[in-house]
Computed example of a mutant assay.
Amino acid sequence: MYASKTLLKVAVLWLGFSLSSYSSSAAAVDLPLTINAQQNNLSANVELSPLVSFDLSVQFENTVGLTPQNLLVEASLINLADPDILHRLPDSLLTTVPQAFPVLISVRPDSTKGFSFSGAYTIELYTKSLHYTEGTPLRLFHSHQNGTFEDITTMTGSGSYRVRGNGGQFSDFIILADLRDANTIIQSKLTRLESIANESQSQLSVGAYQALVDAINTVSVAINADNKGQALAAVENLIHLLEADNGTLYPDVWRSSNDLNNVRGNLISAATTLRFSLRIE
């Protein structure tokens, strides 16, 4: 087994706001990041302040170049009113940063190095700074290249709060309280799924694209007919279609130079978080 430790750079950024529970002094904290290249995973235990800490883990299907030199992972305390964050929220009124966990996590592989992965990674956060309750609106969101944050949640649980999601690309992750209507969330996830498929058409064979579109259309028809059972079954069929492929029909490689579209990983992420929302609706 190959296991190595390096430093997770945790930039604790104070962006001009004052919360009584936090120190106002800027600081940079270096913490150990554990990388196990043989197991295709990384993990870290992070403490940003006496009241804000979390455990991070990322599990990949397969990786190349998963080494300490090829990755930069940063965590920042953010200003709850920071316009650079607010304009990236899907709804500035109904999706909000929890005051007890104003944390932005950024995973930025070095673009000049040879890191790559295939398929969808699974990211999990565990924190005692938040508490799980049944029906909690807390969700894990992801933003690529400063774009709008999108819900990628596939699981939430207790102890004190644990959340899991997956994806086919990096950059930023944040926990938000999402108070949008359940149907709005489901429709937004369906739209994301359709958009990924449409944007990937040029990379797919006619047959692969048609199979994908047919599967997504079946999901869409069931959702729009308000048939939850059929919608869940259709999403499961779509996920099976994607997970059964090894990158032959649906390209599934992402690399740090950011020049490849991880079609399968992005579709799996969109489909599995849609399944999560259908199950809890």
Results as ranks from 00 to 15, higher is better:
Ala120Asp: 01
Tyr121Cys: 06
Val103Ile: 14
Ile85Phe: 14
Tyr209Met: 06
Ala270Cys: 07
Tyr126Asp: 10
Tyr161Pro: 01
Pro68Thr: 06
Thr153Cys: 12
Val64Ile: 13
Thr122Arg: 14
Arg279Ser: 15
Leu8Ile: 13
Ser269Met: 03
Asn36Asp: 10
Ile78Val: 15
Ile268Tyr: 10
Leu232Ile: 15
Ile185Arg: 03
Thr136Gln: 11
Glu134Asn: 13
Tyr161Gly: 07
Pro50Met: 11
Ile175Ala: 00
Val235Ile: 15
Leu125Lys: 05
Ala177Trp: 02
His142Gly: 00
Gln203Asn: 04
Asn261Phe: 15
Pro137Tyr: 03
Asn45Leu: 11
Leu66Phe: 03
Gly265Asp: 11
Ala182Thr: 08
Ser256Phe: 10
Ser171Thr: 14
Ala44Asp: 00
Ala177Val: 05
Phe117Gln: 05
Asp252Val: 03
Ala271Pro: 07
Ser202Ala: 08
Leu274His: 09
Glu150Gln: 10
Gly167Asp: 05
Val46Gly: 00
Thr63Arg: 01
Leu204His: 05
Arg180Pro: 02
Phe170Glu: 00
Ala197Lys: 07
Ser202His: 08
Ser92Cys: 00
Lys228Gln: 11
Gly229Asp: 10
Ile152Glu: 02
Glu47Lys: 14
Glu134Lys: 10
Ser4Trp: 04
Asn41Gln: 13
Gly65Trp: 07
Asn266Ser: 13
Gly114His: 06
Gly119Gln: 03
Gln187Leu: 12
Leu125Gln: 05
Val253His: 03
Ser21Cys: 00
Leu19Ser: 13
Arg108Pro: 01
Val253Met: 11
Thr63Lys: 11
Asp259Glu: 13
Glu150Cys: 03
His142Cys: 05
Ala234Ile: 00
Ser269Pro: 07
Ser57Leu: 03
Thr218Arg: 14
Ala81Asp: 15
Ile185Thr: 11
Lys189Val: 04
Ala225Met: 09
